[in-house]
């Protein structure tokens, strides 16, 4: 049997979500329509409002409906330190896991010649402008430990050094609670090469 046009349209729309296939889309649509119309209206309103009004922070490119996000607007955080990450989700992960008190900059990607992504696509000219303005003392590189992430980190480091900005990078290596035996060779050799003095 086939669903009515509006119901099919709802299922198609739900399938745009990551991880949602035809079966889950059908289950969600039927649940919303048969059991929970209020939730359906609330979801619709929230999606519309967010899609229309959420943009990105002028300073760090985090998602926000304000011109400047709460982190960048905060007077309690150190505006001289910038942690540079690839994705907005990385900001939330770091905020939960650390007591970092500086600001962030979201690249929304990584340098990748084969994908045609260069420094402009990542907003690095904007970032360099901020280095040139002199407000940034230190950057913390938190790009992903992939080949492209490494290329991005190196580029950023050169750019920062050019403006007298200090550069540090988060450590890469063996996951906590893991066992060396089961760590893949690439990670292990990286961790070994990056060993640190133990005092």
């Amino acid at each position: 049997m086939s669903f009515s046009p509006l119901v099919s349209e709802l299922m198609d729309a739900l399938r745009e979500l990551p991880g949602v296939g035809p079966r889950s889309a059908q289950r969600m649509a039927l649940h919303l329509l048969q059991r929970d119309r209020d939730a359906a209206r609330r979801i619709a309103a929230a999606v519309t409002a967010a899609a229309d009004r959420v943009g990105e922070c002028e300073h760090c490119r985090i998602l926000t409906e304000e011109r400047v996000c709460a982190l960048c607007a905060s007077t309690r955080r150190d505006h001289g330190v910038l942690c540079i990450v690839e994705n907005p989700a990385d900001v939330y992960a770091l905020e939960e896991a650390t007591d970092y008190g500086g600001l962030y900059f979201v690249l929304k990607g990584q340098l990748s010649p084969l994908d045609g992504i260069g420094p402009e696509e990542l907003g690095l000219d904007v970032l360099e402008g901020r280095f040139a303005d002199g407000g940034v003392r230190e950057i913390i590189l938190a790009t992903n430990p992939t080949v492209e992430g490494e290329a991005t980190a190196h580029y950023l480091a050169e750019m920062a050094h050019g403006h007298g900005v200090n550069v540090s990078r988060i450590a890469h290596g063996v996951p906590l609670g893991g066992e060396l035996e089961y760590v893949d060779a690439g990670t292990l050799s990286h961790a070994f090469a990056g060993r640190r003095r133990y005092d």
């Binding site: 260069g118 420094p119 290329a151 580029y155 050169e158 750019m159 050094h161 050019g162």
Partner: peptide, 18 residues
């Protein structure tokens, strides 16, 4: 164009700013 070529040049320019 080859993107890595542009990247290399921009990298050198970023380093030159030093």
């Amino acid at each position: 164009p080859l993107y890595s070529r542009g990247l290399y040049r921009q990298q050198l320019r970023a380093a030159d700013a030093r």
